[in-house]
Design a protein around this nucleic acid. Structure first.
Ligand code: ZN
Ligand code: ZN
Ligand code: ZN
Ligand code: ZN
Lengths: 142, 142
DNA sequence: CTTGACCCTGAAGTGGACTCCAGGGTTTAG
DNA sequence: CTAAACCCTGGAGTCCACTTCAGGGTCAAG
């Protein structure tokens, strides 16, 4: 019962790490294989042992994923935080991702507008023959 | 040399169909297995034979794909054009697709705005330590 | 007749990001 | 001491829409 332990290593096994990060336990092992997580030290019984830094790393991955980064990009971003790299590469990756997102958004908006237009012409009842949606797919027409 | 042949069957093999539809030849066979194309009749030598209706069907699939429909949805849409179905199902499929597109667009726009915001704070030079993009990933911050 | 272009089959591979499985060993509560 | 909960491994399976492969048969031109 020491009143203040300046830095207790506070270790935990894979299950707790997974639960804290709200991912499947196999996802953690998968990330290790993919090089996103460092190889964890093991307990006497062979269990992986993690610490606060690993939990933060999992959060990093989680946030990067919500921004749509691929695991490959995330691995590189994590790498860049390790060594004494320059910010330029980080910004380049982010800008590439923004550009990709914008392109994809334009594609989806194009799909949406075309399809909504056709759907707007469809009464929703009667025989399929003559349905404007089907007509549009059968021959290039608006 | 008949001056007017009211309906020449005009048959062709899989390679021409694929080229006309601008898809890989194996894609045609794949679509057949998936039930998107009807089983083609065969020549004496065992070659699949196609006609104008098949070419139109390939165009239908191509257009539906540019609207982002899954092959499963496309199969159903093609099915609906065959029998004496009602338009309601067609419209429902289209509206579902529009809704899915809108949801996906919102997700991507959220990613884009968050990421562009962080990137806007990044000078693009200097050490990674302290980079606003990395900081945002390390801890939930704007 | 031979060459080359074309076609056939069933099966396996691709990519991305997991997820699950079988057949174990380990740790902890009671 | 035992049962439950947890962990280990290598490998396979999942989804989707194809693509590739190996090992052959067919067809038109020269
Ligand atoms: Zn309609
Ligand atoms: Zn219109
Ligand atoms: Zn930066
Ligand atoms: Zn800000």
């Amino acid at each position: 019962m020491p009143p203040s332990a300046v830095s207790q290593p506070e270790q935990f096994t894979i299950g707790r790490l997974a639960k804290a990060a709200e991912v499947n336990i196999d996802t953690v092992r998968f990330y290790e294989r993919q090089g996103l997580l460092q190889i964890a030290p093991r307990s006497a019984g062979g269990y992986r042992l993690y610490g606060a830094a690993d939990a933060q790393r999992m959060q990093f991955i989680r946030r990067a994923k919500t921004l749509g980064f691929s695991l490959e990009d995330i691995a590189e971003l994590l790498q860049l935080t390790e060594d004494g790299h320059d910010r330029s590469r980080v910004k380049a990756i982010a800008q590439k991702r923004v550009a990709d997102l914008e392109e994809r958004i334009r594609e989806l908006e194009k799909m949406r507008s075309v399809l909504a237009h056709h759907a707007g012409h469809c009464s929703g009842h009667g025989a399929v023959k003559g349905c404007p949606i089907i007509q549009a797919l059968l021959s290039e027409q608006g």
